[in-house]
């Protein structure tokens, strides 16, 4: 499943997309994220999945544009820590 966490508002689209079929719940992204945006836990959207999965914490879902801002400077873009840490390539960002 492609889980889109985040939102679209008047200013643009801000989604972190987690491919739950690729995610193996290793938690590397959680460790890599300096701002506590990600967590690993029960898949709330698939009640029959037994393995844990990565997701965006409830706290950050409505403000990821701001939460992730320090990782996305206007100039001198670097690879995102969460994306880089994920070996199965399960994380992508829409902006």
């Amino acid at each position: 499943m492609l889980a889109h966490y985040g939102y679209k508002d008047g200013s643009g689209d801000y989604f972190i997309v987690i491919d739950t079929d690729k995610c193996d719940g290793c938690g590397e992204c959680v460790t890599a994220c300096p701002y506590g945006v990600l967590e690993v836990g029960e898949d709330e959207n698939d009640p029959f999945r037994e393995e844990p999965v990565a997701k965006v914490t409830e706290d950050h879902r409505k403000k990821i544009k701001y939460s992730c801002a320090p990782c996305k400077p206007t100039s001198g873009k670097k690879p995102l820590p969460c994306v880089q840490a994920c070996s199965p390539d399960a994380i992508s960002h829409s902006w």
Partner: peptide, 12 residues
């Protein structure tokens, strides 16, 4: 202020 501050941080 929090939203403005994070915008400012984007430019350093």
């Amino acid at each position: 202020a929090d939203r403005i501050a994070s915008m400012v941080r984007k430019i350093g």
